[in-house]
Amino acid sequence: MIILEYFEKLLIRIGLVCITVALVLSLLRRVGLNLGRLPGDIHIKRSNFELWFPITSGLIASVIITGALWLWRIVRRLF
């Protein structure tokens, strides 16, 4: 039963993370930041080859994730 309780909590946390990521991406799109199509993102297109290298989008995503984890740590210490 202990394993089942752990699995239930894990599924809830994964669901919350998915919802949070979807909301953040939605808010970023409304603000005008289309991740993957920002200045600094590399897109090479040839006749039968296409390469996306999202440098700027990766940096922005990293900053957002780092900030979210930092806030999570602060909130966890308070409660």
Rank of each mutant, 00 (worst) to 15 (best):
Ile2Gln: 07
Ile2Ser: 09
Leu4Gln: 09
Glu5Gln: 14
Glu8Val: 09
Lys9Phe: 10
Lys9Ile: 12
Lys9Leu: 10
Leu10Phe: 13
Ile12Gln: 14
Ile14Ser: 15
Cys18Pro: 06
Cys18His: 13
Cys18Asn: 14
Cys18Val: 14
Val21Arg: 02
Ala22Gln: 10
Val24Gln: 08
Leu25Asp: 03
Ser26Val: 06
Leu28Met: 12
Arg30Glu: 06
Val31Gln: 10
Val31Lys: 15
Gly32Tyr: 06
Gly32Leu: 10
Leu33His: 08
Asn34Met: 02
Leu35Ile: 05
Leu35Asn: 05
Arg37Asn: 00
Leu38Asn: 02
Pro39Asp: 06
Gly40Leu: 09
Asp41Trp: 07
Asp41Gly: 07
His43Tyr: 04
Ile44His: 08
Ile44Trp: 05
Lys45Glu: 00
Arg46Val: 01
Arg46Glu: 01
Ser47Ile: 05
Phe49Glu: 02
Glu50Thr: 00
Leu51Asn: 14
Trp52Asn: 01
Pro54Thr: 12
Ile55Lys: 05
Ser57Pro: 03
Ser57Tyr: 12
Gly58Glu: 03
Ile60Arg: 04
Ile60Gly: 04
Ile60Phe: 04
Ile60Asp: 01
Ala61Val: 07
Ala61Arg: 06
Ala61Pro: 00
Val63Cys: 11
Val63Lys: 14
Ile64Gln: 08
Ile65Gly: 12
Thr66Trp: 15
Thr66Met: 13
Gly67Phe: 06
Gly67Trp: 11
Leu69Ile: 07
Trp70Pro: 01
Val75Glu: 13
Arg77Phe: 02
Leu78Thr: 15
Phe79Ser: 15
